[in-house]
Structures are given as structure tokens and as C-alpha cells.
Design a protein around this nucleic acid. Structure first.
Lengths: 210, 210
DNA sequence: GTGCTAACGTATCTTATGTTACATACGAGA
DNA sequence: TCTCGTATGTAACATAAGATACGTTAGCAC
């Protein structure tokens, strides 16, 4: 575990803090598709990503979903952090996009470290900063782009996260993430295939060029 | 000026901090419609709202706009804060919605206070928290609502901010804020008028019930 | 009053997206 | 091999929203 913290966080946190994290944080391994946090959950600890990826979703009263963004190693869930500090319920749902290793930091420690470690404060601010930026881009995407452009962006992001050119997913899954219907996605994917940009198979999409 | 800080912020900041703010912050008065910050601006100070209201917009490459949310007294612009701390350019545009009184706090002080004052840290975290929440609601609005529902929400918000039931604006203005066309807004407003929910006049909309 | 401009009303048409329905194809397991 | 559930393809239609075009109106300047 030591090595993982060092690899991912030794450049951002001072030595003492890394030690403290090692002492107090609990390691957690989750498998692809596992739900880490759901809407309305109270959160008592904050995740630091060591490996893998997490997708963060918004869900409305009708159960309609929308992908907000992905978290990668070195990231933390600013939403969760925000909820922890504000002692409010989670406003988002988080699902493991890949098999993922996490460190869970208890809230009390977070607050303590905020007063003690400058590097922790910077990390927290930096996290808020990047999450705000990410959310702004999400807003851009849904406000200014058409579904075909959103789909392209989605495929790119997903390929980047997994590091592979073949995505293992279904049209229905994509439709959920983009809050549209399966038929619409199938239609648009078919168009992309006709343009030789992707190749479709059952349960997989191979990307040639986007 | 003393009285204003005290009124709005004495309950959130400790006495010493209020004094520091009085010493270092610069007061600024802006008129309705004034542009406070534009996309790409470098920001060297952070606003604390004393009175009035500010509307925060996102603008894309084509100049298309979208209202994100309004700021009210006691709020600060977390986006600006985020940019200050990250020393990055502004990602948003801010326009005075009403005549507005502000205190401008220089970045260096912000960083200093973060280390010194617990109440300042709490304020900063609280601001990030509420801004994230607000942005999530913005996402909900554009992702899950139709234009007629978005328009209703817009009218309500705007009435709440100004404290009046008659809004002084044009259909074109609303269209800009919601990133749609004037014709669409006129159409929907007319429908609301037919339903006796509002009354339309040139340059004004009187709200009966929403 | 006249003239002018910005705001507003409204019809018509186009398009993106959503909905429904059904046919077909794939692949895991019996 | 056959069977069956799930995934995908596709047509046909419905609807919200955007685009264009043009007429009308309010209010200001003169």
C-alpha cells in the first residue's frame, strides 16, 4: 500500500502527511460496476484514487441518469468532499468504471489536516478547482452540443479512461449515460460506422478514428 | 462600509478577520448590466457581495451564452476564487443583475487568511460547496427539463432575486440567458399568458402565479 | 402629429430527438 | 445442436425546438 500512495501522491503531499495517510486511511478495492456512493447516502469518508477510474453520475427524481465526468488516479471526489465537510447527503452517484483501488480518509482527519498541512489544503483547493472546471465542461457539452457530438466526446473519453480502442459496452448503457434512448444511440453509432470511424459488434465498439 | 461588512458577514467571520477585511478590501460599486468579469480575464481579487445580485454566465467559442446561476449578498464567486487560487483565466462571465456593492479582496490576502483564520477556511469551503450544488442544479435544469419548464424556473429565480413580481427585461434577453431563440421564448411566454400565469407588456413581464 | 427603431406576435417550414413497434442476430448454456 | 434472453437494426411516426420571414405595436425623437 505504501508504494501506491507514494507513486500517486508523494509529489503532492509532504512526507509527514503521507505517513499520516498510511496510518489512518483504509484501503478499499472495488470491482467494475460496483456502486461506491448513491444519491442520499451520508458519507463519512473521502476517497483518494490509487488506480482505476470512477464515473460520477447525476440522477433525477424520475431515475433519469446523466454522466457528469470520470475520476482518475490522483483525483478525489470533490462532491463527496463537499458533502463530508457540509455534513449533507450525497448529491451524486459514483460507480467504478474499472476495477479500482482507493484510500478512504475519514472526515475528522480531513478537517484536522486542513488546519495542519499546507499541501493538504492545496490538494483540496486544487480538487475543487478541477471539479468545477469539469462540471463547467459538462454544462458546455449538454448545453451547446448536439447528441452526435456528445456521443463522439463520450466515446473518446471512455477510450481514454480505459486506455483501449475497443469499448465493451452496450448501446443501452451509453443511452443511460447520455440520458437519451437506445434507439437514438444505435442510430448515431450506425452513422459513425458508415463513416468508417468505428466498427460495431455485439457488446463492443472498436474505434478507428474520431 | 463597516456597517455593511458587519451586517452581511459578522456572523460568519471572527472579529479580527472582519477588521482585516475592512483594512485591505476595496469597496466597489457597480451598476446593473456592468460586466464584472469576462471569459479569459485574469483575476487578482475576489468579490464579496454586500448588496445587489450578480448573474454568472458560461459562454462558448461561438459566443453562445448560458446562465449558470445568480449570486446574492453573502455569496462569493467560487469560480473566481478557484481561478485566483489556480492562477488561471476566468472560465465565466459575470454581469451585475442589479446595482451591486462589493468588497474586493486581493488574492494574496485570501491565501494568507486561509492559513490563519478558521472562519475564512469554512467560508471558502462553504462557498465551494454551495457553488457545486448550484452547478449541479444547473446541470439538472438543462439535462432534464424542457424549455417551458426552464423558462418557468428562470422567471421564478429572477423574481426572487429582484424581489419584485414584475420583471423588466425583453424576450431576447431571456433567450440569451437560456441559450435559445427569441421566437421560442415569445411563443412560450404567450402560452403562459394564455394560462393567466403572467401578463406581458413591452419590456416587462408581470407574474401572477407560477 | 410623423417617422423611426426595437420589441413583440405569429405563420410556416425544417430538423433533431424521442417513441413505439417489431424484426433480426448473437452467444451463452442446456 | 437448439433455445432463449439480450442486443441490435430499422421503419414509421410524434413532438419540441430552431430558423426564417414578415407584419404589428409601443414608445421615443422631432
Amino acid at each position: 500500500m505504501n508504494s501506491s500512495i507514494n507513486t500517486t501522491y508523494s509529489s503532492v503531499f509532504e512526507k509527514d502527511l503521507v505517513n499520516e495517510i498510511e496510518k489512518t486511511a483504509v484501503r478499499r478495492n472495488v470491482s467494475q460496476e460496483d456502486v461506491l456512493i448513491d444519491i442520499g447516502d451520508y458519507v463519512k469518508s473521502m476517497p483518494l484514487l490509487l488506480s482505476g477510474a470512477i464515473k460520477v453520475l447525476r440522477v433525477d427524481e424520475n431515475g433519469d441518469e446523466l454522466l457528469l465526468y470520470f475520476l482518475e488516479p490522483g483525483d478525489t471526489c470533490a462532491m463527496t468532499m463537499s458533502c463530508c465537510l457540509g455534513h449533507t447527503k450525497s448529491e451524486i452517484k459514483a460507480i467504478a468504471e474499472l476495477d479500482t483501488e482507493l484510500l478512504m480518509v475519514p472526515v475528522q482527519k480531513m478537517e484536522e489536516w486542513t488546519a495542519t498541512y499546507k499541501s493538504w489544503r492545496n490538494f483540496v483547493f486544487q480538487s475543487y478547482h478541477s471539479r468545477l472546471q469539469e462540471l463547467l465542461h459538462t454544462v458546455d457539452t449538454i448545453a451547446f452540443l448536439n447528441m452526435d457530438e456528445r456521443l463522439l466526446k463520450y466515446l473518446k473519453d471512455k477510450a481514454k479512461i480505459s486506455g483501449e480502442t475497443t469499448l465493451h459496452t452496450t448501446h443501452q448503457e451509453i443511452a443511460y449515460d447520455l440520458n437519451t434512448s437506445r434507439v437514438v444511440i444505435s442510430r448515431l453509432l450506425k452513422k459513425l460506422e458508415t463513416l468508417k470511424k468505428i466498427q460495431l459488434k455485439r457488446n463492443s465498439i472498436t474505434i478507428h478514428s474520431l
